[in-house]
Amino acid sequence: MEVGILLAKSGIGLDIGTSAVKLVEIESGHPFRVRLVQSEPLPDDAFNKDMFKSTPPIVAILQSLFKKTHSRRAVIAISGQSTILRTVQVPLLDKEEIRNALQWEAEKYIPFPIDEVSLDFQIIGQNREQSESEIFLACVHKDIISQQLDILHQAGIHPLAIDIQALALARSLGLENSADNSSIALLNIGAGTTDLTILKGGVPCFNRIIPIAGKQLTESIAKNLGVSFEKAEQLKLLHSDAQYNLTQAAPGSEMYQVNFTMLEGLRELVLEIKRSFDYYHIQQRNDEITQLELTGGVAQLKNLLPFLSQELGYPVILAQPAMKYKCSNKKVGAFFNEAMPEMMIAFGLALREVIPG
């Protein structure tokens, strides 16, 4: 799924999410220099099943974001429920032989006809005794890639590479191809979905997209309180507390209703995460997860880290860039630090261009 790779003195990462477009531009050096950090919201109804309903609004947003960049070349990421990531066992073959075999065997692992997807893979392990290779398989529906590339072309942007969000996030955290063989969970709670990836030795060995995230929480608040989506979003930002004590609040109060609804949604999310961890333990023969790193816009919800740690029984930390960096000025630094959880994927995409793979 690569369009091309070019190590350069600077890199631009472009993360097109379901609620906003995020851009980070960095320059190589010791330390890296974060030159530009930007985010522009998308219309509420911009997406339908991972596809844009209308392309002109997103083209206009991209053109606006790239007015201040030093280049119009960027690395982008594909995400959504039409992105399939799998760890699968295949016969012990060389890379080209595996690629040829997947053209006939891939439909065992993906829910789409092979001629409708763009597919790539990475060999992550070999067992010569059992004559097997373990591969990390990634595929995306061709219609999604085609639309995204068409939008970039209309905006005058050249895509250097199409990456996977989970890999970009691992890169930003310094976990890509890590020598540490422990299992680390990455939880990206965005607007449209929650993406759970488990890395072992820096390689994704489990991925699941959970359809419970910021937008669904806001919709539940809107429904339960009988208010508009916009008003519900304001109430969520104003009142939400993942450790709110419902027993000490008046049931009819606005604060109570918002947090009652929020906690219902968060507990449902926790249940899905636990199910995923249970499956991973079975798959990896009870291999224990050592910690969970949290990213995404919802990561900044008050007391979410201690709530998740208590509910899941694992240490939960807010993800931070592993590499030292400096910012071009105080304004860029202040925004990057404030918006860090939702900018990590764009940061990891930009890093792809300035560090050796």
Rank of each mutant, 00 (worst) to 15 (best):
F206S: 07
N207Q: 13
P211M: 01
I212G: 02
I212M: 00
A213W: 05
K215P: 07
L217T: 02
T218H: 00
E219T: 14
E219H: 10
E219Q: 09
I221S: 03
I221T: 01
I221V: 01
I221D: 04
A222S: 06
G226V: 01
V227K: 00
S228P: 04
E230D: 14
K231G: 08
A232E: 01
E233W: 04
Q234H: 12
K236N: 00
L238M: 14
S240I: 00
S240L: 02
S240H: 07
A242M: 05
A242E: 07
A242Q: 06
Q243D: 12
Q243I: 03
Q243P: 09
Y244G: 02
N245S: 14
L246F: 02
L246R: 06
T247R: 10
Q248L: 08
Q248G: 10
G252K: 06
G252E: 11
E254H: 09
M255C: 14
Q257P: 09
Q257K: 10
V258C: 04
V258R: 00
V258G: 00
N259K: 04
N259I: 01
N259H: 02
T261E: 05
M262S: 10
L263P: 08
L263Y: 06
L263M: 07
L263V: 07
E264R: 12
E264Y: 11
G265P: 02
G265N: 08
L266F: 06
L266A: 03
L266V: 05
L266T: 00
L271K: 15
L271A: 14
I273V: 03
I273R: 06
K274V: 09
R275E: 12
S276K: 06
S276V: 00
D278C: 09
D278T: 12
Y279V: 01
Y279F: 11
H281S: 15
H281G: 12
I282R: 15
I282P: 09
R285H: 14
R285C: 11
N286W: 07
D287V: 11
D287P: 08
D287G: 13
E288Q: 14
E288H: 12
E288I: 13
